[in-house]
Each structure stands twice: as C-alpha cells, then as structure tokens.
Design a protein around this nucleic acid. Structure first.
Length: 418
RNA sequence: GGAGACGUGUCCGAGCGGUUGAAGGAGCACGCUUGGAAAGCGUGUAUACGUAUUUGCGUAUCCAGGGUUCGAAUCCCUGCGUCUCCGCCA
C-alpha cells in the first residue's frame, strides 16, 4: 500500500507508475474519496467534540438538581446525526481502503521500463558444463532412474502435480534440507515452520490479494488460502507488531510447499517439472530498517547465488523490467538456472525489495533510534524453489549411460545405500 | 463438535454506565543520591488521523464488528482468539 499523503502530493507520479506496471487504477477517484472522507471526518470530529463536552456537563447538572430533559432531547438529535455521519464515514473509508489496496508498488527509478523483453541481464555465474555427448532432459533421466511418476500422481490430483519415488523423493528431501541448513549456518537465518493455510488478511498483507485471487487455492468454508509461497506466512508472522530496533534485522527462512492454480498458463513451459500446482520452496525473508533494504537485497541475491554455486550450476541474473515486476515489488532480481538437457534457462529464484509496501498493508512497524514508530522494509527471495533446481541438477550431472553423479553435499542427507 | 471461563497499555492488573486514555504495580528512559552500584526519591513513558506546527488542541482506539443510551472499557448481539472440561481423531 502506498502512503495516501504521497499519492495526494504526487498523483502524476503514481499514475505513471501504475501505467508502467500495466495495472489499471483510477487515481483521481481515490483522491476524491480521500477528500470526501476527510470532510466527513472533520464534521464527525466536531460534532463528537460537542457531544463529549455536553456529556460531561450532564452529570454535573444532575447533581445540582437542574432540569436535564431539554438538553437530553437536544443531544438525542445530535446523537442520531453523529450516527449518520459515522455510517457515511465508515462506508467511505472502506471504499477508499479497498481502492488503495489495488494500487501496485512504485517501481524503483533504476528498474528498466517496459515489459518482459526489457528485463536486463546483469550477470552470469557458475560454469556452464560442457558435454561430450548430447545431454537428455530430466524426464528421460527420471524414467531411467525411476525418480518421478506423473501417471500415478495424476490419479491423485490431476495434472500439474508430481510424485517423487525412491531416489527422487530422497533427493528432493536432501535438496530441501541442504538449502535450509546452508542458509541457517552460513547466512545466519532463523528457521520457522509455519502454516500453509492462511487467512485473507495475511494474503492482503503481502499483496497477493485482492489482485490474484484467481490464482490461489482457497478453502471456501473457512475462507483460508493455500499459500503460493511462504513469503506470505513469514512476512505476516510479525503483522500488526511494533518491533524494537534491537530485533532488526530479522532474517527468516522456511521450507514450505507452495500452491498455485496457474490459471491461464496452460501449455506454457509445462513440460515435466517446469510448472507445478504444488512445489517445494525454501524461502528467505528479511525485515529491515528502511535505510538498509537495498543492501539487504544485494545480500539476499548472493545468499541465493551461494546455493547455486554450491550445487555447481550455471545461472544468470536479470533485473526485471517494470511490466514484469510483481504487484508489490519495487525491484526484483530473477535468477535463472541453466538446464542443459531442456536447453533453457529456468527461473529458480525471485528476489524482491518491497520497501514499505507490504509493511503498510500488514502494519509491520518498528521503533527507530529516535523512538519514533516507522514502517519497516520487507524483502524476500527464493533460496531456492526445488523443481527447476532439480531439473538443472539432474540434467547437469547426467552421464552418457543415463546414470547420475550425486553431489556429496546432497548424498550426505540420504541414508539409504545407493 | 458440546459445555464453561476469559480477552484492558511493553507486561501484570484495577475498573463493570458519566469527571477513565484509562487506578496501582513492574519494566524502560532521564535526573537526584553514591567512590561505583543496589536500594530510595523525582519526572517521563501508546498508536492513528485532523488541526496548529513553539508548548498545544480535537477525534478515534480497553480483541473486532454491530446494537442500547444524552453518554459505554463498563449493558446486549455476532464474529475471532485464548484457557479448562467432555467427545472425536493423526
């Protein structure tokens, strides 16, 4: 959520930003609602002040055994006018609030303008493995090594879900544990294990709602949502709180399954593990003082890169253009890993600075060094999502005969004899 | 799922229709005291919005929403949460 004062003072800037993000919000309407609201608030406050004042006089008058019936009759009328005003004020506030929730975050000035095609490549990392044979894709390797069973997972849940079997299941679990332990021990994150079903308020807090309701799995009966990423549970963990300076920065990491309906993306990069309705992800979240958020963004990028380096995978990093930026983000880096068999770079991590956008929605504040209450900045980044990391791992560490070389860092998590 | 109790500031806790943004205590901050500390004493210690912007003033907030009333932390209703007992269950 943007600061209403900021919108009031820079309406053109906000309109431009909304346009650059390919969103549609009527800013003028919001400004009108804001004005209406303030007028109502002003009238309400004044009338209330009068009511409060007279209400204090009444008991005194009664004590002095004066006649209060006239004044009470008068106040009765004032009371009903206050109720009318209050109702109108509530209605206007709610409308204003719901409109404000539709405004996306402002992209940073250094974010490239334009759509996906304008994403800017800023770095490549890791060495691209050279093969002396034609590498096959992860589906063929899964077939040979009996790692995945899509036929049977479809019996359970339909398409878009995976079933890892045997070594596949163990590898997936090893990968998750490896990444978690890495961030905890090498990067100083604190691990949390949180609910995957969250309420509407949490989904609004991080900005998934109201925009993306169609993309979320929802439990109608309880109005709960399956999280599309543990960013939601991690960031909202401190919602509504005022943190002390000594509690910052918070560096949180969590494993969770993630659930996405992926409505409207049929046939788009759906081969094998590329796009799943349910997948596993290790997520990093940082809650920081505003002046530190850009340093934190760069650090988180490195935190994610470290995993890919440790796994010996080749990758590239992009700065997303305004049109490809998510609703809540001010600046995002995407990390794409090279999958030699598939022959593509696949997104495995998205690292974003939300600045105070989520903090305002979720009311996440802290007391600064002058004891002033202020919004924190929030960031998150995948560290990493497993399915595409698995694709890259399998395809990178394959041998000509279809067998796999398992990395020792992962093997140590697998107890079974291989 | 059934029955009951409860939900007040950073925390504990009083208040159960009017002068209560809220007693009292703890904590914290500053000052005095001390060689230094503890104890003691004094002062201060919520958030949001509006308005004035030097101290200020007004409004709202005692889980949330609604109702009764001239007036609600206090009474009523609904929801949410916590705890206890019972039932069911991985």
């Amino acid at each position: 959520m943007l600061d209403l004062k900021f919108i009031r003072e820079h309406p053109e800037l906000v309109k431009k930003a909304v346009e650059n993000k390919n969103e549609k919000v009527d800013i003028d309407r919001i400004l009108n609602l804001d004005q209406d609201k303030r007028k109502l608030q002003f009238d309400f406050d004044n009338l209330r002040a009068h009511q409060n004042k007279v209400s204090k006089e009444i008991p005194k008058l009664k004590k002095a055994s004066g006649d209060t019936s006239k004044i009470i009759r008068e106040m009765s009328e004032i009371s009903s006018r206050i109720k009318e005003l209050s109702a109108a004020l509530h209605q206007t506030s709610e409308l204003l609030e719901s409109e404000l929730l539709k405004i996306p975050n402002l992209p940073d000035p250094d974010v490239p303008l334009g759509n996906e095609s304008q994403n800017r490549l800023i770095k490549t990392g890791g060495t691209k493995k050279v093969f002396d044979f034609e590498p096959v894709d992860h589906l063929a390797l899964s077939e040979t090594n009996k790692l995945l069973d899509f036929q049977r997972s479809a019996k359970l849940s339909g398409s878009g879900f995976f079933a890892y079997t045997g070594l596949g299941a163990m590898l997936e679990r090893a990968l998750i544990n490896f990444m978690l332990d890495f961030h905890i021990t090498k990067h100083g994150y604190q691990e949390l294990f949180l609910p995957v079903l969250v309420n509407r308020k949490a989904m609004i807090g991080t900005g998934q709602l109201p925009k993306l309701e169609e993309d979320m799995y929802r439990i109608e009966e309880d109005d709960l949502f399956l999280i599309p990423t543990s960013e939601v549970s991690l960031t909202n963990f401190y919602a509504g709180e005022i943190l002390n300076l000594k509690d910052l920065p918070r560096k949180l990491v969590s494993y969770s399954p993630c659930f996405r309906r992926e409505a409207g993306s049929y046939g788009k990069e759906t081969k094998g593990l590329q796009r799943m309705h349910q997948f596993n992800k290790v997520e990093m979240v940082r809650i920081v003082e505003p002046e530190n958020s850009y340093r934190a963004l760069e650090e988180m990028l490195v935190d994610a890169e470290d995993i890919l380096e440790a796994l010996g995978l080749h990758y590239r990093i992009l700065t997303l253009a305004t049109g490809d930026l998510s609703f809540a983000s001010a600046k995002t880096y995407d990390i794409e890993v090279w999958a030699p068999g598939t022959g593509k770079y696949l997104e495995v991590s998205s690292i974003s600075n939300f600045k105070d956008f989520q903090a305002r929605r979720a009311s996440l504040r802290y007391r600064d060094r002058n004891e002033k209450v202020n919004f924190v900045h929030t960031l998150n980044g995948s560290g990493l999502a497993t399915p595409r990391t698995m694709i890259a791992l399998l395809e990178t560490y394959q041998n000509q005969d279809g067998s796999l070389d398992l990395l020792t860092c992962l093997k140590s998590y697998i107890q079974a004899d291989l």
